[in-house]
Simulated assay, not measured.
Amino acid sequence: MKQLIRNARLETGYQTKDEVVIKTNTEITDLLIEEGHFTKIGPHLQESADVTIDAKKQLLLPSLREMHIHIDKTYFGNG
């Protein structure tokens, strides 16, 4: 299955001042996903897809996973 995400904001780099990051550079681009893998990234992709999503210039981030534990809980060590 092919999925196309249009108009996604991706981080492309950083701006620094006195060796401190002060700003993130971003660009609006399209992403083509085939069989769960990004196969093309670029502006205005002319690809057909089974599903097309307009990201509306929102920032695209990887999924996040909560990985903290509470040592005082019985869950520790029980995966």
Rank of each mutant, 00 (worst) to 15 (best):
L60M: 08
K56E: 02
E34T: 09
K73F: 14
I69N: 02
F38E: 07
H70F: 08
Q15A: 13
R6G: 11
D50E: 06
Y75H: 12
D30Y: 01
I33L: 03
E35T: 13
K2L: 07
D50V: 04
K23D: 14
V21A: 08
Q58N: 11
Q15M: 07
H70I: 10
H44S: 09
R65L: 14
K57C: 10
L4Q: 11
K2E: 00
H37G: 07
K2P: 04
L59M: 13
H70D: 08
L32Q: 09
L61I: 15
D54P: 09
L10E: 07
G79E: 03
A8V: 02
T24Q: 12
E11D: 15
T39D: 10
K57S: 13
M1A: 15
K40Y: 06
K40R: 13
G42Y: 05
E66I: 09
L32C: 04
T39F: 02
H70R: 14
S63C: 15
I41A: 00
T12W: 11
R6E: 05
H70G: 10
L45V: 00
H37S: 01
N7Y: 04
Q15F: 10
L4S: 02
I71V: 00
F38P: 10
E11L: 15
T39C: 05
K56L: 07
S48T: 12
R9E: 09
V20Q: 15
I28F: 05
E11V: 10
I53A: 01
E35K: 06
I22S: 11
E11N: 15
R65S: 13
A8P: 01
R65M: 13
L61K: 02
D72T: 13
N25I: 06
H68E: 00
I71C: 06
I22N: 05
T29G: 04
L59S: 10
S63L: 01
M67W: 11
Y75F: 15
Y14D: 09
I41N: 07
I69Y: 14
M67Y: 02
Q3V: 15
D54F: 09
K40E: 13
G79I: 01
N78L: 07
L60V: 10
M1G: 14
E19H: 00
T52F: 00
L32G: 10
V21Y: 01
K57R: 02
I69P: 01
Q3A: 11
P43F: 07
D18F: 02
Q46T: 13
S63R: 03
D30P: 00
M1D: 06
Q58T: 05
V51N: 04
I69S: 07
K73C: 13
P62Y: 09
I41M: 09
K2N: 04
I22Q: 12
K2G: 02
I28Q: 01
F38A: 06
T52V: 13
V20S: 14
Q3P: 00
M67A: 10
E66Q: 04
T12G: 13
E27G: 09
V21I: 04
K2C: 03
L31Y: 03
R9Y: 03
K57N: 02
D30I: 06
Y14S: 07
